[in-house]
């Protein structure tokens, strides 16, 4: 067993462990952190597949930006876990059946018959000077230029939509106009009333 295979199994084991912990751990912050670990480990697996550009982008986008914001939100939530776990045993049989069906479906779709070495040729190992980044750039900007442009336009629309959704047309908070504050005089605010006393204070006369 070569070094590469050992690395694959180590990373694979960590990935499966982290992915399992994401859905079983109780604390949502821990779940988010295990998701980060899962992303990071799958990036390592992609590097083993000579896809270093995708691996680095995965770390950059998901680990570096998306999960930070996610963690940000999860940390500020005050979730009471007890009501969420009510009825766990009641729905367990249904859950097991659904999970079993999904596993069976995945098994029939993705197995050695369709993805084994008989069906798909072993990928060619490239020399050390092979640059996945360069190859990817070449393909994206030539053969797949239009799909790439369309995807970027959709992303741009999504960004604009997100901003438009959170944009408030009118300011809700009260704010002060300094020029109005400056021109205020005492007589605008205070009315001095002179009136005789209602009754004599005892001891003054």
């Amino acid at each position: 067993m070569g070094v590469e295979q050992i690395l694959f199994y180590v990373f694979g084991a960590i990935l499966v462990f982290a992915a399992g912990m994401v859905i079983t751990v109780r604390n949502p912050v821990f779940a988010a952190l295990f998701l980060v670990l899962a992303f990071f480990t799958s990036a390592a697996l992609w590097i083993l597949l000579e896809a270093e550009f995708l691996a680095i982008t995965l770390v950059l986008v998901y680990v570096g930006a998306v999960m930070v914001l996610f963690l940000f939100v999860v940390m500020m939530l005050d979730i009471n876990l007890a009501p969420l776990q009510e009825g766990f045993t009641r729905y367990l049989p249904v859950g097991i059946v659904v999970a079993g069906i999904i596993v069976a479906e995945i098994y029939f779709a993705v197995n050695a018959e369709h993805f084994g070495l008989q069906a798909v040729a072993e990928p060619v190992r490239h020399a050390a000077d092979y640059s996945n980044t360069r190859e990817l750039g070449r393909v994206i900007y030539t053969a797949y230029a239009y799909p790439f442009e369309i995807a970027s336009a959709i992303l741009l629309v999504a960004i604009v939509a997100a901003i438009a959704l959170t944009l408030r047309a009118k300011r809700q908070s009260k704010y002060i106009q300094p020029e109005k504050q400056v021109i205020v005089r005492r007589k605008d605010r205070v009315r001095i009333v002179k009136m005789p006393p209602e009754r004599e204070e005892p001891g003054t006369s």
Partner: peptide, 25 residues
Amino acid sequence: DIDAGLLYILAISSMGVYGIIIAGW
């Protein structure tokens, strides 16, 4: 001497924020 060195730098330096967030939490 990797080809995507600049991207690697960007990716790795974006991980540093986790230390601070986790410390705070």
